[in-house]
Nucleic acid binder design. Structure first.
Lengths: 335, 335
DNA sequence: TTGAAAGCGCTAACAT
DNA sequence: ATGTTAGCGCTTTCAA
């Protein structure tokens, strides 16, 4: 900047003001300086700026990973989520720092804030670490978590309505005349737990009893889910429908079912979750619960920015929607 | 840090040294200071550190987006790639700054470097902007591009062997007895261009002539690809195989084919590209060209780090592999 | 082994 | 409208 000032024949203060678009520098010099900066590929040094202004424009997005089971990481859900977040963040002029932290050490994420690297943290999923998140929030680390709204929660969460999603999926299957509906997912995870409650709720509503043998407790991992479904078939447990907690799991299940000789949707109707991009192109096209991805990023970022402006932000639950395609409709074209 | 120094009864210099693990501070005080820092949730301010040391540990990963056609963005390819990059980067102690820039203004990415925000740039895909990338490289912006190796290329690229991938896919289809193989992708994009050349090469090798009517020039966009395939069928152009430039396109094509009354793989054999996670769970399981994702991240990061250490890094081409599943095998189970 | 002090590049009073 | 200057939190040379 000093060089630039010398070249322009002004002081560094003027250059600083010009480059920050201050109006108290004459438009002529402002343009001259900007032009000069462009020619020299000069850009304000962000470290210095941040140091001086004690603020920055970086938000950390943390994707926990499970080092033992490598769970979740390849779910297309994340891409969609990250795309949405990246859009919301960049359109508001924030940078997005992507960080993967061991799900067992979620509190490490806080150091991104403590070190001034990021002004706030967006965490995707709460996993088994509700308590660690509460500790961070109690320390006033600006934090928004995508996930379920739980009891005794200090931090701000934004998430789809998982209970309603589970209920909608299950009701839809019941309306198709299905009587024995399997549940594929791990209710130990908060979001899945709520979906499972919605599932049970819908069953009872229709006068059915949840059968524990129909609960396939599996992480978000396609291969394990496939195996579990194959086992269910091999064990001779009767079922005529399956609700999977992600589209990836649903597709894995469909494949396992068909290769076990069960036709989909005729013998087994399947509903997924998320409505990722390719769900409509799957074979058969997937009936699924659509997560509000487009809003999600915006809502999360809004919540974070509100926190940063000092407001107390309550958790938000976003509406989800049933998208009916062929995987759950017995009358549909099937080969 | 001053507070910490006061509490510990030492100077800031000692604290700085202790926290950076310098051996010239006694182990006793070092432990004491570290412990104190932990209790206070103190972490070194990165802006100040970076400003002072004139270096940092952030690498920018740039995903170009096409503002007009919203091309590519939702390809699961990116997630896999980003996961791989995130792994490689974090395991080497670097942060990953995710940035989406308008594909028409790729050179904007350089400002991340100019401003000291990142020490280098990783760009995913070169799109139509070979020249802008060359300009950046000529300015000595540390840069690695995932993509094709082109003529007159100054920048360092790392990419799969697209020519070979195209050839392998096509040869495989020819070996299945297919005679009229459609190509789905946009050869204006460098990587796709090479795949297309490989495709043509394999055809000629077998004594066949490429038929321009079998080239479905489409961006990486499932809906457009579906439509194009449907149109091809409706137009009555004969074909018995299709090579798609991504798994998403392949699945979209299969769906379009089946809903147009063509069975897959019996009437039309299909090969995809990438081998994303769910390709094996698609219906039918997808024959595809596997991109070396696991290596890719590591190779890209290595290349960047080598550049940063002052070496001239030549482009690298990684081996790709044909993965045969059912979508291209007529004898396979089909419903 | 530890401390004092200079300075990284910038912004924002304050002065002109 | 522009310049002077102090200081953001850190590292590091030099001195003790």
């Amino acid at each position: 900047m000093a060089d630039l000032a010398r070249l322009a024949g002004v002081s560094v203060a003027t250059v600083s003001r010009a480059l920050n678009g201050s109006t108290e520098v004459s438009e002529a010099t402002r343009n001259r300086i900007s032009e000069l900066a462009r020619q020299m590929n000069y850009t304000i040094n962000l470290s210095a700026k941040n140091l001086r202004t004690r603020q920055n424009r970086t938000v950390a997005v943390v994707i926990p990973y499970d080092s033992t089971s490598r769970q979740h990481v390849s779910e297309p859900f994340f891409l969609t989520m990250m795309g949405s977040l990246a859009d919301s963040l960049t359109s508001r002029g924030y940078d997005m720092l992507l960080s993967r932290v061991d799900a067992e050490k979620l509190d490490m994420a806080a150091s991104l804030y403590d070190s001034g690297t990021a002004i706030g943290i967006i965490m995707i999923g709460q996993w088994h670490h509700h308590d660690q998140l509460n500790v961070m929030a109690a320390r006033n680390v600006p934090l928004v978590v995508w996930g379920a709204q739980l009891a005794q929660q200090i931090y701000c969460s934004v998430g789809g309505d998982n209970f309603d999603g589970g209920a909608k999926a299950t009701r839809h299957l019941i309306e198709q005349g299905r009587k024995r509906i399997a549940f594929l997912g791990d209710p130990d995870l908060p979001e899945v737990m709520l979906r499972h409650r919605g599932y049970e709720h819908a069953l009872r509503e229709a006068g059915m009893q949840p059968d524990p043998r129909l609960l396939l407790k599996q992480p978000f991992e396609a291969n394990m889910a496939s195996d579990a479904v194959r086992r269910l078939v091999a064990d001779g447990v009767a079922f005529d429908a399956l609700f999977a907690c992600s589209d990836v799991l649903a597709v894995a299940a469909i494949h396992a079912l068909r290769s076990s000789g069960r036709s989909v949707p005729r013998e087994v109707a399947v509903v997924g979750y998320d409505d990722v991009e390719w769900a409509r192109h799957a074979e058969p096209p997937l009936t699924t619960i659509r997560q509000p991805f487009a809003n999600a990023g915006a809502e999360i970022v809004d919540a974070l920015l509100q926190q940063l402006s000092g407001q107390k932000v309550p958790p938000r639950t976003l509406r989800v929607e049933l998208v009916v395609r062929n995987s759950s409709i017995a009358g549909s074209a099937e080969r």
